[in-house]
Nucleic acid binder design. Structure first.
Lengths: 210, 210
DNA sequence: CGACAATACGACCGATCGTGCTATTTTGCA
DNA sequence: TGCAAAATAGCACGATCGGTCGTATTGTCG
């Protein structure tokens, strides 16, 4: 990989980390450049606008999410185990545990740990533009992933036939969102067990009586 | 009420509305002054710092929330009706329907409609300061309100004795958060019925068999 | 090694940020 | 109605915003 692309990735990953603290609009070219020991103009040359940088950040977040959350779950057997894997992966993600594939790729967000998608959802939910569009696309894809896993669980006979995958994904998201809220804002130590109880209930309700 | 206090409220309510679009940090003294046909310094004189303005906005939001969500629910009979009232009020709030008590008090946020507390939760969940502290206090109070209503429902015999009010409030919040996410970001038309199904399930699980 | 393209830098632009200070207008009351 | 007090405006400040441009440095490859 060329020098340019390497620094570009460093920029994007650092911007991703900073965005967790101050939001994506709050990531400033100046502070970002200082953080990276780069000149502002040298940094800016990699993207022709700030919005391009923001889009790159969203794309990078998607890549890490796929690697950390989706991929490991897809390695699990289809049905309930995979659904559970998605949930566990999502918890890891919200806790800020991001894993790198190869050794030389350091993952972002070592300190500032929280789900950037939920942060961006609030930041952009009524701010039209390409960033919002990219975000919506990513979130819809994620919901679809949950739905697909749920549908497979129905097909496998793990879940009841009358389980609605869309409703399942809707409630799945709710559990993780309130988990994040409790953990990060309210600093509730019991957030994780409570999330497991809630999700356990959702699973139990969906499960076939067998 | 003196002229000063009146304009002060106008400022705060307008800032509240703007914060729904651009976040609380994103509300600029300049744009706020322009919006209100005030000079920047004239506006600034009402608060001695931007943070004071932000704190006033949070306090104002709490007041509207109490008026729109909590108060109507407390008028309902204790037990399940009151719990349901809190949920319906919260849905109204998230949809942006804020009611004024007296005619001369125009409520804020006519256009930009979404829950400012969820937005601030993301904005401040790792940004220490007085604003965050105020927000955390407000959110904990809200959770406590839900828990109290749930406990009363247990006492009234509407809910099962082994229902955990804290867990109930945790899941209650999850339903509304995923509702807001679906409605505002994903623009899902089915968000509201899905939220009702989810909450209905939560109620059904909590209900005493009787 | 030499050369050309890729990359980074420094200076600078107009605009706007939050925040003082002082002058002027407006308000409420004696 | 007059006057102190309250409210608002005017102006300026240092800093920083996203972005441009010309130039220097550096990486890459023949």
């Amino acid at each position: 990989m060329s020098k340019g692309l390497r620094t570009r990735r460093e920029i994007v990953n650092t911007a991703l980390t900073m965005a967790l603290d101050v939001g994506l609009e709050g990531v400033t070219l100046g502070t970002l450049a200082t953080e990276l020991d780069l000149s502002k103009s040298g940094l800016f040359a990699h993207f022709r606008s700030k919005e391009a940088l923001q889009l790159a950040v969203v794309a990078e977040a998607e890549a890490w999410f796929a690697l950390t959350v989706v991929r490991p779950a897809l390695a699990l057997p289809r049905g309930e185990p995979r659904v559970q894997g998605l949930f566990e992966g999502f918890l890891r993600w919200v806790r800020g545990e991001i894993r790198a594939e190869s050794a030389d790729e350091r993952p972002p967000a070592l300190g500032g740990n929280r789900c950037i998608f939920m942060a961006l959802a609030e930041e952009y939910d009524d701010r039209p533009g390409d960033v919002r569009d990219a975000l919506v696309r990513a979130q819809r894809a994620w919901r679809a992933t949950i739905e697909r896993a749920c549908r497979l669980a129905v097909d496998e006979g793990h879940f009841r036939r009358d389980v609605d995958p869309t409703q399942f994904a809707f409630e799945f998201m709710g559990v993780v969102m309130t988990f994040k809220h409790s953990l990060k804002l309210l600093e509730d130590d019991d957030a994780e067990p409570r999330a497991r109880v809630a999700f356990g209930g959702l699973l139990a309700r969906s499960r076939a009586v067998a």
